[in-house]
Design a protein around this nucleic acid. Structure first.
Length: 423
RNA sequence: GGAGAGAUGGCAGAGUGGUCGAAUGCGAGUGAUUGCUAAUCACUUGUACUUGGGUUAACCAGGUACCGAGGGUUCGAAUCCCUCUCUCUCCGCCA
């Protein structure tokens, strides 16, 4: 959430940067609500002040044995007026907060202006797409032939988009999770956590999924819980409503399954593992001091890239343009893997600096050297997302005979298996 | 699921229906002293919102709210009543 004071004081700048995200129409209604809310608030506070002063007098006069009946009656009326005005203020405040919670973060100054993904800028590429002596097959053909997954039975159990991994496919899933967690905890300084994957509404609001993205989440009505779409939600909310223990930064990593309804995406990429309702992901989350957050973003991206480098997969890093930036992000890099069977790039990581946008919503603060509290900056990135990573491995390392060679870094995690065959 | 206990500032922990925004201790900050990897003393130290002054700030003065959340009683509630949530203990069930 944005700082209302900043919106009031630097309205023109805020308007311009909201415009880059196509959200400037939200601004004027919010400011109007803010003015009205403050006007009424001042009125009620004056009434309350009067009540407090007189009540104190009554206490003294009663002690002195004076009759207070007439004043009491007057005060009762004042109390009724206050209750009424309070009601109005509460209504205004509710609407004001709702508007504020629906306002996206402002893009960082380095963000290219654009309306959609076509405006994204390629920052760097790593590795060369492999030259094939045969036509590379899509991952579902490679995997199904090797018995790595069973989409039909997954659909029977839960529905389309809920993959069932089998045999070496299930092992590959587990191996990748283990490999990535090991890398981040031993080489990059992250502390591993294993959080709840069902979260409450306060947590979803804290990271910015609610109220705007309600329809994209699985919701369990009986218990008022949401299935986390990413570990970002439970992990960032670890410190909700807290003053963080010093020193910062704090780096956390977590493996969790992720659940997405993908509402509105019906019919797109329905085949295979590219767009599914449940997938596994290793997530990286950072809590840092504001002055360092953009440096921290760069190292966060590098931590995610290290996974792909270790697996010898060709990838590119994009900086998202203003129009493609997610709701809560100020700056975001996407990492995309080349998938020869799919003949396209696949997003496997999204690394964002949210500045204090999430910290304000979730009320996550730290104490500076002078003991003053400030909002932290939060960052997170996939390190990286499974399913699509599996797609890229199967498609990049497939052989003409239908087998798939394992990247050397993964062999020990696969129990020594260096090649998946249809044995 | 049943029974009981509890929820107060960064932490621990008092609390009388009306100078309680809240004792005390710890922690933290500032200053001083002695000196040596620290100690002692003094003072200070919650947050949010809001009005005015100052102002790309720091800050100053006033007001309101906040003692788990929401409601109620009252001229006045941390303190009394109700509902809810969470935590702990015991019992039951269970991977």
């Amino acid at each position: 959430m944005l700082d209302i004071k900043r919106i009031r004081d630097a309205t023109d700048e805020v308007r311009e940067r909201l415009a880059a995200k196509g959200a400037e129409s939200l601004l004027d209604p919010l400011l109007e609500l803010d003015r009205e809310r403050r006007r009424l608030l001042t009125e009620v506070e004056q009434l309350k002040n009067q009540r407090n002063v007189v009540s104190k007098e009554i206490g003294a006069r009663k002690k002195a044995g004076e009759d207070i009946a007439s004043v009491s009656a007057e005060m009762r009326q004042l109390g009724d007026r206050i209750a009424e005005a309070d009601q109005t203020v509460r209504g205004l405040e509710e609407r004001f907060n709702d508007h504020l919670l629906r306002m996206p973060n402002l893009p960082h100054a380095s963000t290219p202006i654009g309306v959609d993904a076509t405006g994204n800028r390629v920052v760097r590429t790593h590795g060369e797409p492999r030259a094939f002596s045969f036509t590379p097959k899509p991952h579902w053909e490679v995997g199904q032939r090797l018995g790595l997954f069973d989409f039909e039975r997954g659909a029977k159990i839960a529905g389309a988009g809920f993959p069932l991994f089998t045999g070496a496919g299930a092992r590959l899933e587990r191996a990748l999770i283990q490999f990535m967690l090991d890398l981040h905890t031993t080489r990059h300084g992250y502390r591993e956590v294993s959080p709840p994957v069902l979260v409450n509404a306060a947590s979803m609001t804290g990271t910015g999924q609610l109220p705007k993205m309600k329809d994209d989440m699985y919701y369990i009505g009986a218990d008022e819980l949401y299935l986390a779409p990413t570990a970002e939600v439970p992990v960032t909310n670890i410190y909700r409503d807290e003053i963080m223990p010093s020193p910062l930064p704090v780096y956390l990593t977590a493996y969790t399954p992720c659940f997405r309804r993908e509402a509105g995406a019906a019919g797109r990429e329905t085949r295979g593992l590219i767009r599914v309702h449940q997938f596994d992901k290793v997530e990286l989350v950072k809590f840092v001091e504001p002055a360092t957050s953009y440096d921290e973003l760069e190292s966060l991206v590098q931590n995610a890239e290290a996974v792909l480098q270790a697996l010898d997969l060709p990838y590119r890093v994009l900086q998202l343009c203003s129009g493609d930036l997610s709701f809560a992000a100020a700056k975001c890099y996407d990492i995309e893997l080349w998938a020869p069977g799919h003949d396209g790039w696949l997003e496997v990581s999204s690394c964002s600096n949210f500045e204090d946008f999430q910290a304000r919503r979730a009320n996550i603060r730290y104490r500076d050297a002078q003991g003053k509290t400030h909002f932290v900056h939060t960052l997170n990135g996939s390190g990286v997302a499974l399913a699509r990573l599996v797609v890229a491995i199967l498609e990049n390392f497939q052989q003409e005979d239908g087998s798939v060679v394992m990247p050397p870094a993964l062999v020990s995690y696969m129990g020594g298996l260096d090649r998946l065959t249809s044995a």
